[in-house]
């Protein structure tokens, strides 16, 4: 293996950070991992933007708003290999269960006429990202190279995938590691 560390960026879009927590379940294997890997943009580092030579981007969560689109595009642009991590990134997951309710109804329920709403108004600050009318999986917005299923994928999934990549092998998850739940 070369001495130059592989740059990995991670982010959670419309997700719950559960996939990130599962990643941390690598526990002591993280020590081995950081021998070969350097974290770039990630909640683990607080780096705000990807540097332009990232090798691997791990993305949790689907695409539910305009900011998600911008972030996803940044990752696609800056990372050589882009990976959809977890059910939400792969099929929209739980956030996509709002897809059968119109966005108008969602917003009205949450901000206008839902139970317990005070001072009803739709948030309109220009700093806020706008919601897409549907939540989309990542592969419907940018090209995705690999998919790690699971809710969340177990630490073993991350380990198997990353060690394959680091060893220069084509990543392939064994049967035991493919779970959708």
């Amino acid at each position: 293996m070369t001495t130059k560390k592989v740059k990995v960026a991670t982010v959670s879009l419309a997700g719950c950070f559960g996939c990130h927590m599962s990643f941390l379940d690598l526990d002591e294997r993280l020590v081995d991992l950081v021998e070969h890997v350097q974290f770039d943009r990630s909640p683990l580092t607080d780096i705000e933007h990807c540097s332009d030579d990232c090798d691997i981007g791990l993305i949790e969560g689907g695409v539910c708003n305009s900011e998600n689109v911008h972030v996803l595009r940044e990752f696609r642009k800056q990372c050589k290999i882009l990976v959809a991590v977890g059910a939400c990134a792969i099929n929209g997951g739980l956030p996509a269960m709002r897809n059968h309710i119109s966005l108008e109804d969602c917003l009205n329920e949450a901000y206008m006429d839902g139970i317990g709403v005070e001072n009803p108004q739709i948030p309109s600050d220009v700093e806020l990202p706008l919601l897409l009318d549907k939540v989309h999986p990542l592969h419907e917005v940018v090209k995705i190279d690999y998919f790690l299923p699971g809710c969340p994928p177990s630490a073993d999934v991350f380990w198997a995938f990353l060690t394959d990549l680091l060893a220069g092998r084509e990543p392939a998850l064994p049967y035991e590691l493919i779970h959708f739940d």
Binding site: N91, N99, Y146, I178
Partner: peptide
Amino acid sequence: NMTDNHFPHFF
């Protein structure tokens, strides 16, 4: 060994 849904979703 399916890991993704490949096609666009109908929702």
